[in-house]
Simulated scan of single mutants.
Amino acid sequence: MTQAPTALLIDFDGVLRTFDPSINAKIEQRYGLEPGTVLDVALEWDRLQPAITGRITRSEWLATVAAALAERVGGPQRAAELMEEWVVYPGVVSPEVLQFVREVRAAGHPVCIATNSTVEFRDVLETFDLVGEFDAVANSAEIGVHKPAKEYFLAACALVDTPPARCMLVDDTDRMVRGARAAGLSAYRYTPGDDLSYPRRAFGL
């Protein structure tokens, strides 16, 4: 019989924070790029992995993106200008998801951010006034291994002092959900606008 979760691991980008793609799309179009190009280049694995495992900083990662785009946009200077504009939009925190986090904590269950991010991620929490909203932060750049590796999830569970069988991950990516389940956690695939009724019931809310 599956045990009810007693701790929540929740993804940041795509769950707690969302982005309106049209905002950066307008910037990209001004530089002659198809919408989504910058993100596609930024997420190329050989470029992304060093950033989310703490081997390079966010600035260094974004510099590699600019270098990769330079020829397409008219040179290094113009690519640097593109990236300066592209990073301005911070996205928005979902009030519904944040309320869910608060309800889980109010019910006595620890909540851990589970994110693949850069070493500067705690600055992002400060930007959104989220410091203190979570019991722990499992940032891949601090742990040194990224989702969906089993080692990552075991480290995240340890941060809230809860065995994997009693932890639930809420994430928007199938690959992460499958990885969490393989590591012994329960996991729920989030989609934008989800009312989170299933994980609410799992936590007895």
Rank of each mutant, 00 (worst) to 15 (best):
C167A: 14
V101W: 03
T127F: 15
F153K: 07
V131E: 09
T118Y: 08
E133P: 11
A141E: 01
Y89A: 00
T173Y: 08
L125I: 12
A136P: 07
F128D: 12
V88N: 06
A106S: 14
V170L: 10
L98C: 06
V111P: 11
S140V: 06
R166D: 14
E126C: 11
R175V: 13
D123P: 00
T162S: 14
L98M: 15
T115G: 06
C112M: 09
S94H: 08
V92E: 15
G75I: 09
C112I: 10
G132V: 13
P163F: 00
L159K: 14
G91W: 09
V92I: 12
L98H: 05
A165H: 13
S94R: 13
D129G: 14
A67S: 15
P163A: 02
V88K: 15
T127Q: 15
D123W: 04
G75E: 08
V170Q: 02
E84C: 05
T162K: 10
F134Y: 09
G91Q: 12
F134W: 11
A106K: 12
G74F: 02
A136Q: 01
A158W: 00
A114F: 01
F134N: 04
G144I: 07
S94M: 04
L125Q: 10
V104L: 01
T173H: 06
V73G: 01
G179A: 02
V111C: 11
W86Q: 11
D161V: 00
A114Y: 02
D174W: 08
R102M: 07
F128E: 12
P164N: 06
G132H: 11
P76G: 09
R178W: 02
C112R: 03
K150N: 10
L125A: 10
A80S: 15
K147M: 01
D129C: 12
F100T: 02
S140K: 02
F128C: 10
D172T: 06
